[in-house]
């Protein structure tokens, strides 16, 4: 009894150590496999880039039960449709009809009617710094492919056909524009298209979704994910900073995007509604807002207006605004208004 008592405890101790090792190894492997199965197999992040609206769109979605490829096809289809409806150069669609006929009845549920009504609010909120009735001036300057500074007489003649309140009449069931006025929603259409696409993908089951078209971004999720949005610096080949946001929109407008230089002077597509000439009050403006339609229009308005005027834009239309100015030697100054969620 005594001998048995001395041996058995020793044997039990040796077996327990090996068993413990084997159990821990198996458990860790099972946990690792399980972790990958849970996080990878059921939740998939996918990214797709495709050409649309004269630029590129990037869509990032995280899906669990929906085929990501189906979401990409829907996004591509919707963006292409909006491109035709809202593009000034599409050659067809409601905007083309409005610009060529001078006035049409538009269903209040149509994309163009929604865009015109939202534009009406933003034109007044920005003191006409954002003004889609400037289409004829863009045409005179030749944007997006300018060839040089137009004759001043031609610019003043074109100015007669601009000015939102003078040229656009909005009634309950129709929208009319004056003869020779051209509406150009280039400063808001991309943001609107981003919003429509983002909302569609969330409705279709994306748990995390980011849509970017030509640098205008809308993002959000049901998981609380933080999205990191880089902000381009207008004069350097680095970022001005990185924003960290869980939900909302970011849009940037700058004089580096579409411009030419003549006799040392930079002429950009950011046209001043008062003078008809490109504004030089800022080099770029980035706006963070709840939706991309607002952010897009406000970014253009802030870039045209510059920091002195833009600081008076109604604070309930945006969360944060970053305006970077540059002098003739490209020395830059940064102005921030509202809350800027810089990444730490």
């Amino acid at each position: 009894m005594q001998l048995s008592h001395q041996v058995r405890p020793g044997r039990r101790t040796t077996l327990s150590g090996k068993r413990l090792l084997v159990i821990v190894l198996f458990t860790s492997l099972i946990l690792a496999v399980g972790y990958r199965f849970v996080t990878t197999s059921h939740s998939v992040q996918a990214t797709r880039t495709f050409p649309v609206l004269g630029t590129f769109a990037t869509v990032i979605v995280t899906v669990e039960e929906v085929d990501a490829q189906l979401l990409f096809r829907k996004a591509d289809s919707l963006l292409t449709c909006l491109d035709i409806q809202l593009g000034r150069f599409s050659g067809s669609g409601q905007l083309h009809d409005l610009n060529t006929t001078g006035g049409i009845s538009i269903s209040t549920s149509s994309d163009l009617a929604g865009l015109i009504r939202r534009s009406d609010v933003l034109v007044h909120a920005t003191g006409n710094s954002f003004d889609p009735s400037m289409g004829i001036l863009s045409q005179v300057w030749g944007f997006p492919e300018p060839v040089g500074v137009p004759d001043s007489g031609v610019i003043h003649q074109a100015l007669v056909h601009t000015g939102w309140d003078l040229q656009v009449q909005i009634d309950s069931d129709s929208i009319t524009i004056q003869r020779n006025t051209i509406l150009d929603f280039g400063a808001i259409a991309k943001g609107y298209a981003v919003d429509q696409t983002w909302e569609l993908l969330i409705e279709m089951g994306a748990s995390e979704c980011l849509v970017e078209v030509g640098g205008e971004v809308r993002c959000g999720s049901s998981t609380g994910r933080i999205w990191y949005i880089g902000v381009r610096h207008p004069r350097r080949e680095t970022l001005a900073g990185i924003l960290a946001i869980t939900s909302g929109a970011v849009a940037t407008s700058g004089d580096y995007e579409c411009f030419f230089i003549e006799e040392g002077i930079r002429y950009s597509h950011l046209l001043d509604t008062d003078t008809g000439y490109p504004s030089r009050r800022s080099a770029s403006a980035t706006v963070i807002a709840g939706d991309c339609t607002t952010a897009d229009a406000m970014a253009t308005a802030a870039a045209v207006a510059g920091p002195d005027q833009a600081q008076h834009f109604p604070a309930d239309e945006y969360r944060g605004m970053i305006i970077i100015t540059a002098d003739e030697n490209d020395a830059c100054e940064t102005y921030e208004f509202g809350d800027i969620p810089w990444a730490e």
């Binding site: 205008e216 971004v217 990191y228 949005i229 880089g230 381009r232 995007e257």
Partner: peptide
């Protein structure tokens, strides 16, 4: 990679 996308 430090950003998801860039606003420009």
């Amino acid at each position: 990679k430090t950003t998801d996308v860039i606003s420009y």
